[in-house]
Design a protein around this nucleic acid. Structure first.
Lengths: 185, 185
DNA sequence: TTGCAAACTTATTAGTAAATAAGTAATTTA
DNA sequence: TAAATTACTTATTTACTAATAAGTTTGCAA
């Protein structure tokens, strides 16, 4: 299965968005590595906003597939997979997609903002349910508000992918282990 | 005491950096509101990197004064003031300065990166000491690793200032209260 | 009062940005 | 096999970017 040009543009765009930020990359940064002309990128995504929208949708799709694949696993393992996923992100000098969009929030059109909001709520709800399930099964320590717990886990790993740029990888590991330790019985 | 043009540029630059990101604002965005010419900004800060460096230094100074003023207060109150400070940030649609710099990390020259690293370490150490002191005084619950606790608090509020752009102000309040509740005896 | 430095302005440049129009080749469809 | 659609290319435009050179005003110091 060969990857289409459209798909390649989305993947490279996502990479640049999360490594440098929405306003820090140009169409040339996409066309050059793919060895196509600038206008070819515009053919697939007339405006940069269109590209951003496609990237947001792409992540929604990926997360859908991820959560379906994880559905059968037990909460503890689901959480570990989730945390490891974010650990791998920052090793490639990127931040997570939600932080990336949040950063450039006021550069984004309303349709993209809505898409990102829906995606974010999806992730928060997924985490909230995961925590509730883990508590019901006695795998996780009881917490008052599961959404708050979910938010704090999300916040921690999101910020960590950014903070390790400044401090060190070791700090990310500290945080990750602390989340697990605090939650697990 | 009237504010100098140099100071005004730094303050407006800081505002733009944290609201839109380093690559999303231009010298025109600074010169226009201040009703000066573009070149006047270049007079004070020849390059955009010079401006970013000045903003980093400015925050270091502010934090120095903040921590000196807080030195006499007890840990619990110091923490509350700290959290409220960050709560006020996101109400003005900005993110904290460390997250802002982290986002545009690869657009920054090495001298700025060093400055930001020093500033970040300063804040982490300040928080770590605060937690240790609070534990010693019996005001805070005992935790294994004070640096980890500091990192998690920092991560939570940093990410929250970004996340609330996407979700809601209510989510920030949830996180803030959760931090206090978790730590306080 | 003269001179000189600080704090600007006007004017310009070289480079890059997103975006679009018009043309072309290859593939698909009717 | 003719026509239309897809996936591009070349060429160009408009607008903005950071940055600099050269000139001007203003206030202070010798």
């Amino acid at each position: 299965m060969s990857t289409s040009t459209r798909e390649k543009i989305i993947q490279l765009g996502d990479d640049l968005l999360r490594r440098q930020g929405f306003n820090a990359f140009s169409y040339a940064d996409i066309s050059k590595p793919l060895q196509i002309r600038n206008a070819a990128v515009h053919y697939h995504f007339p405006s940069k906003q269109d590209l951003a929208f496609a990237i947001a949708q792409w992540h929604k799709d990926i997360f859908d597939r991820f959560s379906q694949k994880m559905a059968t696993k037990e909460p503890k393992d689901r959480l570990k997979t989730f945390l490891n996923f974010y650990h791998s992100i920052h090793l490639s000098e990127k931040v997570d997609i939600i932080s990336a969009f949040a950063t450039d929030w006021y550069s984004l059109g309303p349709n993209i903002q809505t898409e990102v909001q829906e995606f974010t709520e999806l992730v928060i709800e997924w985490l909230t349910e995961l925590i509730q399930e883990g508590m019901d099964l006695g795998q996780f320590r009881e917490t008052q508000n599961t959404r708050t717990t979910a938010l704090r886990i999300l916040s921690s790993i999101f910020a960590s992918t950014q903070l390790v740029r400044i401090t060190s990888d070791q700090d990310f590991t500290l945080v990750k282990n602390s989340i697990l330790k605090e939650l697990l019985n």
